[in-house]
Amino acid sequence: MAWVSSARKRSPWLLHYETGGCNGCAIEFVAALTPLYDLERFGMLNTGNPKHADILVVTGCVNARSGRVLRNLYEQMSEPKVVVAVGVCACTGGIFHDGYNLAPGADKVVPVDLYLPNCAARPEAIIDALLTAADLLAETRRRDQHAHQRAPDQQG
């Protein structure tokens, strides 16, 4: 239905998880929420609750511990959902890529739909990525039917 996808596009609620890294991208993301950039004019709210959120924003490099949390958060979100990897750390590991405890990119843990490979990502770029993610949400109308498979090794 057209009006459902239009509503999805205009009301994407965000969940932000900072997995590690230098925290630069996380701060830029929070800057995008402030009155100066005002993400709420697109209907976006930072919910802080996976059960209410539509877009999972991952910043920083994923390590063994935070990867488990990230997977848990992702699984608690109800469909349809979109994952955005913000910053080069979340995309590939970035300057920390050869760290002994790191997964090279958030997509090793959760299915990532959008990559924003900046270091650090500027608020304007983050807004652009989130609007594209909102379009994705609107398109993935039937997503609930072919839900992402739960990876067997990540359970529990």
Binding site: S6, A7, R8, R10, S11, G43, S78, P80, D144
Partner: peptide, 12 residues
């Protein structure tokens, strides 16, 4: 918009 979106999310 919020209401319609929430209503069409998967119930959990």
């Amino acid at each position: 918009y919020d209401l319609v979106k929430l209503w069409h999310k998967r119930p959990q």
